[in-house]
Design a protein around this nucleic acid. Sequence first.
RNA 1: GGCGCUAUCGUCUAGAGGUCUAGGACACGUGGUUCUCAGCCACGAAACCGGGGUUCGAAUCCCCGUAGCGUCACCA
Length: 458
Amino acid sequence: MKIRVRIPPSPTGEPHIGTAYVALFNYAFAKKESGVFILRIEDTDRSRLVADSEKKIIESLKWLGLVWDEGPYRQSERLPLYKKAAEELIESKNAYYCNCTPERLSKLREELQKKKEMPRYDKKCFYSPPKKGPFVVRLRVPEKGDTSFEDIIRGKIVFKNKDIDDAVILKSDGWPTYHLASVVDDADMRISHVIRAEEWLSSTPKHVLIYEGLGKKLPLFAHLPLLRNPDRSKISKRKNPISLLWYKNQGFLPQAMLNYLALMGWSHPEGKEIFDLNDFIEHFDLKRIDPTGPVFDIVKLEWMNGEYIRKMSNDELAKRLTDFTHVKSKNIANVLPLIKERIKKLSEFDELTGYFFKDVIEIEKEIIVQKGKSVNETKKVLVEISEVLNEIDWNKTTIETSIKEYQANIGWSNTDLFQTIRATTTGKRSAPPLFDTLEMLGKKKTASRIKKAVSLLS
RNA sequence: GGCGCUAUCGUCUAGAGGUCUAGGACACGUGGUUCUCAGCCACGAAACCGGGGUUCGAAUCCCCGUAGCGUCACCA
């Protein structure tokens, strides 16, 4: 059997991290099995449609490198198919027209809820078919028996038919709901494996019934665990960044995103934490997926991003950095070696290197004057250091030699002296090794910053 | 509330009845690395939800309980 899988994002907002997660697993499965990976835009909810959402979804998937073999298909372009399927289902008595008003429906819901029962349609229009519209079409669920299916990750799942609702499958505006559209498309596109998030598990029996009503062969199902917020609820905007564009703009690398997402519910059989997409594909196995919903931990993602940054060549990294700073690429390349192991997200570049490029920096007395040293003493040292540095040819070695020679004369500890100079020249308590920093900064800027500090201390 | 899914360190996970005094990673703590931070190295603290079974033997199998999550729209 030819393996065919799909992802069905809905263009109703920002491209979602969950979409990337499901896409990754579908993609890996397709590649592993030499199958086909399909992109299908599920745009049947006309009221929630967001104009540039589809564009952003596509852009995000491309950014991640999860490129589809077929599509994008759009459900809005396939309306006749759904209408025909709905008619077929009505014909075979697996669906029926209904004209119940929203008012009646919500009253019904209320009553059932009061009786602590599952709110579901009472089949009124099935027993007494309505004469006039507007109509919706409802799935007719048998009142007796079970509906079951096999989930690759969770095993056999059984639902009693009495617990399944006669869901609307065709809306009164003539558009299908998710249940109908996705089943019709999956059947039509010969989808072999429906790999989707766990939130769909409880509506799967409806889908099974639609397949059966249409006389189509059932695909295999695999319900992936749901990504979670730190409080274990379904991952959401309120508690976590969920937009793929946010991650892109923060300077997370696509390789790191993919690698991290691959570790959600799945683990490398050799216990590796860091592995690339090809490695993932090679070892991928749906049966190795843990059904427990994993908490999306951005701290570990940042660690992993740092790992990828450090592994990347300087040239490549400098190139990527141009999207995150106005610093000229030549200058990026120059400072890169100094911050490469300190940067976790590309967006941190300016914060980490600003003092190299700014003409003037903010400095504070408190961080210049070290504990146990007086202001006057510190000022004197800075004046003398400035004289010492003024004499030399500017390079790392001469800077180091002259500063250490001076240090021997005054008897300050490395920490005290170096931190004084570091704070004076960078405005920060922490920065790359001092001599590298000064060399990079240049003689002129070093001198002017010391001068400024001296006057601050006066 | 009905239905469904799930349950190993704070987090991601390994573990498919004996090899588990439960392993790894992130985070955390301590020490080292000719100055800070980072990186790197070493060490440390940290978990099988509870109760019953099954078995010579259970983190692993079964049942019950508890908890978490999902779902119950003319949204997907």
